[in-house]
Design a binder for these strands. Structure first.
Lengths: 336, 336
DNA sequence: CTGAAAGCGCTAACAG
DNA sequence: CTGTTAGCGCTTTCAG
C-alpha cells in the first residue's frame, strides 16, 4: 500500500499533522498561504490520503455497492453505466458484485456489508430471492438500500422500477391484436417482482380478450442457456405450439430466435415475438425485434441519485416510495 | 457504518480483544474450545469486522480495481464477468471505474490509487491514452497493474491480449478472397494498442494482395455515436465507396449496419462486413454478421488470475510478459 | 493458551 | 490561525 503519509508531509513543511489535514480539506481555520503551500506540496508529491484511515476515522467509506444478477446483459450494463457516472460525479467509489441469480451468494454479499464496507447499496435482486432478512438487517444498521428493477415488495423501501405491468399488458395486447391466440410468456423466475408484474400484465390482457386461466402459458426458464434452449424448443416443437411469445428478458429472446431458426419456424409468420430488451441492435436482427425498451441508464442514474440524496442529507432515512420510469414499446417486424 | 465491534464481542465473551481477533482468524494460538465459542457468537450476532480498520492495520485492502473505457459493450461486460468471478473466489472486492475513453478521467482515477485504495489494478486503456506516467507511478509504489486488451507497449508489464494482428489479417484476407477491392478499416483511435495491431494486420493482408499504401483506408471514429454515424455514412455515400468494411469494435459494426440500411446498401451484395464483436446475437442479425470473437470472459479471468498470483505470493513483482489468447473468426452471411 | 499494549494513518475536538 | 491529543477498530508483537 501507499507509503507517503500525512506525517511525512507535515514534517517536510514544518507543520503539524493536524494543520496539514485541515489544509488539505480546505478548512477555513487555515490561512490561505499555508493552505496553498500544503496543497502544492501534496500535488507535487502526488500525495493521496490513505482512504481506509480516513474511512475509519470519519465513519464514512465513500463507497457504494452495486449488487446485480449479471452484467453481460444490456439492461444491467447500462444501469451500471448510469450508476457509475453519478457515483463518480459525487466523488464516490463503486463496488460491483454479481450474484449469478443465486440467493445464497447474494446473502453472503449483503452480509459482508454489515461491517460497514459501504455507505449505501443499490441492488437488483436475484430471481430466486424471497427472504428479505439480509436487507432488513442492513436497514436496521442504518445502511441505506435502494432497489432497482427487481425489488422487494414486502419491505418498505425506495424503489426505482419501470412500468412492468403496463408494458407487459401492452405487449400482450399487441400480440393479440396481430391475431395471436396462443401466447406463451417466458419467465426467468416465478417469484421475482418484475416477473410477477409482467405476468400480471400478460394475464390482464388475456382476460380482457376473453381468455381463461387455461390459456395462460408461462414457461419458467431458470436454468442455464442450454436448459432454457431445450425448454423453449420443446414448447415450440410441440403440437400445442404458441403463435406468440413474450420474452421477459433479453437473453430469452435471443434463445427463442435461435430455436425458431433451428426449427425453421418463420417469425412473424408462424410465431410472433416481443421482448423486454435493451439491445441496441434489436432493429438489426432478422427479423427486427419488437421490444419493450427499459430506461436502463436512467434507472441506474435515478437509483444512484436517490441514494446520494440520502447520503448527503445524513438523514439516512430512505422514503418508502416507488419511482416508475416508463418503458417504451417499439414495434418492429417480429410482430409484423 | 456498522457499530458492532470486536470490543463488544470480547466483553460479551469475557475475553480480550486480541484473543477474539485471533479466534476469528483461526489462529492456532487459540484453543479450539474458545475459538468455537467466539465464532459461534460472531455468527449469531452477524459480526463482520470493520474492513477499513483491518485494511489500515494489515496494509492490504482486499480490493482490486477494474478500469475500463466503457461497460455497455459485450467485450467489456464479459471481461468484468470473468474478473469478478475470480475476485469473489479469492474473497476480494471489485471496484469499477469507467473512463469513457477520456485520458484525463483515467489519470484522475489512477492517481487516486496512490493512496492505497486497492491491492492491484486491471486496466484496459482509454483509446486516446498515450502517457504511461500514471501507471509508472503506481508500479513505483509497488501496486501491481495488469493490462488487458488495450495495453501499453512502452512499458514492461503483464498483459493479457488476443491475437489482434493475426485476426485482423485473417479478417482482411477473408474480405479480399471474397472479392473486395476497396476495404475500409473503422477504428476508434489511431494510437490504442489494439487499433495499431489491427491496422497492421489489415495492412499486411493488403500488401500481400499487392495493394499499395494508397489503398489503405482508415476511418477514425473517435466521436460519439452520432458523429460516427455521419463519418461512416459520408464514406459509404461517396463515389469511392468501400466494398468491404472491417469494424474494429462492436459498436461500429452496429452503426455500419444502420448506415447500410439507411442508404439501402445491400450486405453482402454492395458491401461486405466483418467485425470484432462478442455479441451473442451476431448470428441473428440481418444479415448474420461475420465476427472475430474475442475470448472476453477468459481474458478477464486470466488477467485477474495473474493478479492474484502476484498478490498471493507477496512478491509483488509482475513478470514482463504478454499472454495471447486466440480470437476466432466466424464467417457468416455478411461476408457471404 | 490468553492478555496488554502499541500503532496503522487519519480527523476532530480542544487548547493555545 | 496552528499544535496537541485522543481515538476510529483492528491486528500483532510481546509478556505472562
Amino acid at each position: 500500500m501507499g507509503n507517503l503519509t500525512i506525517r511525512m508531509l507535515a514534517e517536510k513543511l514544518g507543520l503539524s499533522v493536524g494543520s496539514v489535514s485541515k489544509a488539505l480539506r480546505d478548512s477555513p481555520e487555515i490561512s490561505t498561504s499555508t493552505r496553498k503551500k500544503v496543497q502544492e506540496l501534496a500535488r507535487e508529491l502526488h500525495y493521496v490520503p490513505n482512504p481506509y484511515a480516513s474511512s475509519l476515522r470519519r465513519k464514512r467509506s465513500g463507497t457504494i455497492a452495486v449488487v446485480l444478477p449479471e452484467v453481460a446483459d444490456h439492461f444491467f450494463s447500462s444501469a451500471i453505466d448510469g450508476i457509475e457516472s453519478i457515483a463518480q460525479a459525487n466523488g464516490y467509489h463503486t463496488l460491483i458484485y454479481l450474484t449469478h441469480e443465486s440467493p445464497l451468494r447474494e446473502e453472503a454479499i449483503l452480509q459482508d456489508f454489515q461491517g460497514g464496507r459501504v455507505d449505501g447499496i443499490l441492488i437488483s435482486l436475484s430471481g430466486a430471492t424471497t427472504d428479505p432478512r439480509a436487507i432488513r438487517e442492513l436497514v436496521a444498521r442504518n445502511i441505506p438500500v435502494i432497489f432497482f428493477d427487481r425489488v422487494f415488495e414486502e419491505l418498505p423501501a425506495t424503489r426505482i422500477v419501470t412500468d412492468d405491468l403496463h408494458s407487459s399488458y401492452q405487449a400482450t395486447r399487441c400480440l393479440l391484436e396481430k391475431g395471436c391466440r396462443k401466447i406463451a410468456y417466458l419467465s426467468i423466475s416465478s417469484t421475482s417482482s418484475i416477473m410477477v408484474k409482467r405476468m400480471e400484465g400478460y394475464k390482464k390482457a388475456l382476460a380482457e380478450y376473453g381468455f381463461s386461466g387455461e390459456d395462460v402459458n408461462c414457461i419458467v426458464c431458470e436454468g442455464d442457456a442450454g436448459r432454457n434452449y431445450t425448454l423453449i424448443k420443446d414448447s415450440l416443437a410441440s403440437d400445442r405450439r404458441p403463435d406468440g411469445i413474450i420474452a421477459s428478458v433479453e437473453k430469452l429472446a435471443i434463445t427463442t430466435y435461435q430455436v425458431c431458426h433451428d426449427l425453421q419456424l418463420s417469425i412473424p409468420g408462424d410465431i410472433k415475438i416481443i421482448a423486454f430488451s435493451n439491445q441496441a441492435s434489436a432493429a438489426l436482427l432478422d427479423p427486427s425485434l419488437t421490444t419493450i425498451t427499459q430506461p436502463a441508464f436512467e434507472m441506474g442514474r435515478t437509483a444512484a441519485a436517490a441514494l446520494f440524496r440520502v447520503l448527503q442529507t445524513e438523514e439516512a432515512i430512505l422514503p418508502d416510495e416507488t419511482t416508475v420510469l416508463p418503458s417504451k414499446l417499439i414495434e418492429r417486424e417480429s410482430t409484423g
